[in-house]
Design a protein around this nucleic acid. Structure first.
Lengths: 213, 213
DNA sequence: CCAAAAGAAATTATCGATAATCGCTTGTGA
DNA sequence: TCACAAGCGATTATCGATAATTTCTTTTGG
């Protein structure tokens, strides 16, 4: 068998999609690699159609790049690309923070839980865990705005995958990464909307230069 | 013949896509309408594949909604949806404005040209023209950041189509709409980055409540 | 007369095959 | 030797047909 089998009643193209995402994230399909539709189809034991559909969808989320009549390639997350992602995150999360203030001020549980997760992960030196919970933390801010469109766009940035790559490869101090979120949580608990925007923006900025070290 | 014939060497699915966009925007396919793949294929004189591909792509840009195994429907641009779009524009353009300042301060030509276009359109009572050039104006700010990712996301918001719908249907004063952009242009010419952000944000906010009248 | 079930019609998802196009290799003439 | 064109293999784009599912209609039993 080829594609992962979980989620029985999802469509073939969705299974294929998940499989491709996994392989791009774990490096099986390295950046720049050409993904040939019929080749993947054969590999997964399906026809061209679902593979093509999966690739097109991943193209719209920018995990791969599709060039008409030429092919599909795994996006190489170049330094420039990463910088662009961070800048968009800065725009989205910064604006989201102020809008999310009322909801998160009333109930900061999502942030607290994510922070707890990060601390536990840091304690066990679990880089993947840090990536996951850090993503949860930032995502929670966007979720709290109630803006589904913004959340969709934010999700399409593949923050978790990128964070994972950064944390796993990089020499990031896990404890420091976790604690860096504390001021943001405190701002939501006892600060102002503007302060939240400011801290989120600064936090983002810090990380945006981290990978260049 | 069915699909528009311009752009000779674009793919069938792209032609189909443009045709569907046009018909959604001009109301031929009203909100909520179900778009049946084989039906459209017959109408356009193509097979199911390019239609399906076009619909999937439009789904990723939220112009239509795809429900697995159930079909594709024209999104009803509800008040909530529009508000979400405006909020995201606010986030993107507001942040973009400050980053675009150096480039547009050095050369504000794109903004000036768009403004000139708007004025001419207003003079001839051309609502479509206003929509187009207003879009150009705001897009120029995002372009000037040099961030391709942000531009892609901005484009996916279908600002022009929405502006068109608002202006054409609504009772918008075209002259006022054009002149509303002057302070922004002036801020880029002789103001500060922060002022640009402020004005763009306010401008956005004004428009965000316009459609509710 | 109504609710659930069976059957029919419509539509999406997938397949296998073919047409159109691209990039590379090979051959040609200056 | 090199620019360029023809030919070739690989791959994407599109087609027409079929399988799988959903939705609509009709039937059945209470």
């Amino acid at each position: 068998m080829a594609v992962s089998a979980a989620f029985e009643n999802e469509s073939l193209s969705e299974k294929v999609k998940r499989t491709i995402v996994d392989r791009v994230v774990d490096g099986t399909y390295p950046p720049g690699m050409r993904l040939v539709e019929l080749q993947l189809a054969k590999e997964f034991g399906v026809s061209q159609a679902p593979v093509r559909e999966a690739l097109r969808e991943l193209s719209s989320t920018r995990l791969v790049e599709n060039i008409p009549r030429r092919g599909t390639f795994v996006r190489s997350a170049s330094q420039d690309d990463l910088a662009e992602v961070y800048f968009v995150r800065l725009a989205l999360e910064g604006t989201a923070a102020a809008a999310a203030y009322p909801a998160l001020h009333a109930d900061p549980a999502p942030l607290r839980e994510a922070l707890a997760g990060m601390r536990e992960a840091a304690a066990t030196n679990d880089a993947h865990g840090i990536a996951k919970y850090s993503t949860d933390f930032h995502r929670a801010v966007v979720v709290a705005t109630g803006n589904r469109l913004m959340l969709e766009i934010w999700d399409s940035l593949y923050v978790e995958a990128r964070t994972m790559a950064t944390v796993v490869r990089g020499h990031v101090d896990l404890h420091a990464a976790a604690e860096a979120h504390v001021p943001i949580l405190e701002a939501f608990e006892s600060g102002t909307p503007d302060l939240c925007t400011k801290l989120v923006t600064e936090h983002q900025h810090e990380y945006s230069i981290l990978p260049q070290e």
